[in-house]
Simulated scan of single mutants.
Amino acid sequence: MDKLRLLEIFIATCDGGSFAAAARTCNTDPSTVSKAIGRLETQLGLTLFQRSTRQLSITTAGKRYADTVRKMIQDLACCEDELKHLNDTPCGTLRINSAVCYGHLYLRPLLAAFCQQYPAIKLELEINDLHMDIIDNDIDVALRTGFVKDSRLVARRLSPMDFLTCVSPQYLEAQGIPRCADDFQQHSWIGFRIKESQQLQPIFLPDDKGEYLPYELARSHITDDGEAMAHMCSDGLGFAQLPHFLAKEGLNSGALVSLYPYFRPPQPESGVFVIFPKRDYLPAKVRVFIDFLTASLASMGESTHHTWAENWTPVLTFPGQKKG
């Protein structure tokens, strides 16, 4: 029998004045209560009750011990109530870790509305591209493009990650439009270096059937920063294959055009994910943040299996495919 159970039986015996009364309160039998009190007395090396055939009376040591135990149980109950309230109420500090580009372009513009809706939640936002251990670093929720399999975590896909082959209108006007993948050998290309692996992001271009295949191209320029890549592209330094959240602003403003329809990597781990520790009772602050983010993305035309890029009209289409 654990110590807390012994203490509960002890207090029930104090309140009831007998082993029989304590047994009724604790839903057990008098013999079990008697053995529990005896075990507690042995642990303490004290006599808590004077026993006789006619009555049970608490000792001076027993009274003092009961006062302390009663306060401890009340404090524990208050603490449990407070913790349950915190877990069930959207409040407290929410620690968010986000990939750099997604954090700046998609997450940050939504935060004011989130804080207005949930004023009791305070944000602690970390922006980096490090795949850190979110449990060891006490992070409530992370936003990542892709995820690492970890049985301690839940990874919920917010959207696919669609890529668009982008270029500035000025570049096309000056250099012409490549009509097939081989034509790109004569054009400038901006490459992206993945920080963790130091490898260049592969390029996928469509064949004459519209099937995207990996394609080897020399990169005229290279960067490891996604936003810099998008700006270099809109500045006319060449073509770039941008994820949808990086391409959106430039395409909407006209600073960029998309040469082909979107490309979606087939790997199941590809996409934008919200990641959080696995637990039986998800804190309300995490739950409402995920719900808010999901609803906000839905209003932008994005969901688990779709992005706005599916409906974007490219400059070129595949054979037999109509624009728009």
Rank of each mutant, 00 (worst) to 15 (best):
D150I: 02
A155G: 04
I127R: 01
D136P: 03
Q185V: 14
C180D: 15
A112N: 09
P178N: 05
S188R: 13
A113F: 01
Y106P: 02
V167T: 03
E126F: 08
N137I: 09
D133F: 11
L172G: 05
R179P: 02
P160C: 01
Q170S: 11
I139W: 04
I121A: 01
I139Y: 00
Q199E: 15
L111C: 06
Q198M: 13
S151T: 14
I203M: 10
W189A: 10
D138L: 09
P119G: 03
L200H: 12
F114Q: 03
F204G: 05
I121T: 07
Q170G: 08
V154G: 02
L205Y: 06
F204W: 12
D162K: 06
L130F: 12
V154P: 02
F114K: 00
D138I: 11
L143Y: 11
L107P: 00
Q170K: 13
I134H: 05
F192C: 08
D136R: 14
N137Y: 14
Q117C: 09
L123V: 04
R157A: 10
L110G: 02
E124D: 14
S151K: 11
S151M: 10
M161N: 15
L158Y: 04
Q199V: 15
C180R: 09
R156K: 13
K209Q: 15
H187R: 03
P109E: 00
D140E: 02
E173R: 15
L164P: 05
F184I: 09
P202V: 07
V154F: 06
Q201A: 15
E124R: 12
A155F: 01
Q198L: 15
R156H: 11
P109M: 00
G191L: 07
M161C: 13
L111A: 04
Q198D: 15
R108I: 03
Q117R: 10
R108D: 02
G191F: 08
H104N: 09
D208A: 13
Q201C: 13
R193I: 14
D138C: 10
I127W: 00
E124N: 12
G191A: 08
L172Y: 00
E173K: 15
P206K: 01
D133S: 10
L105W: 00
H104C: 04
Y106I: 14
A181D: 08
V154Y: 04
N137W: 09
T145D: 14
D138W: 04
F192N: 09
E126D: 13
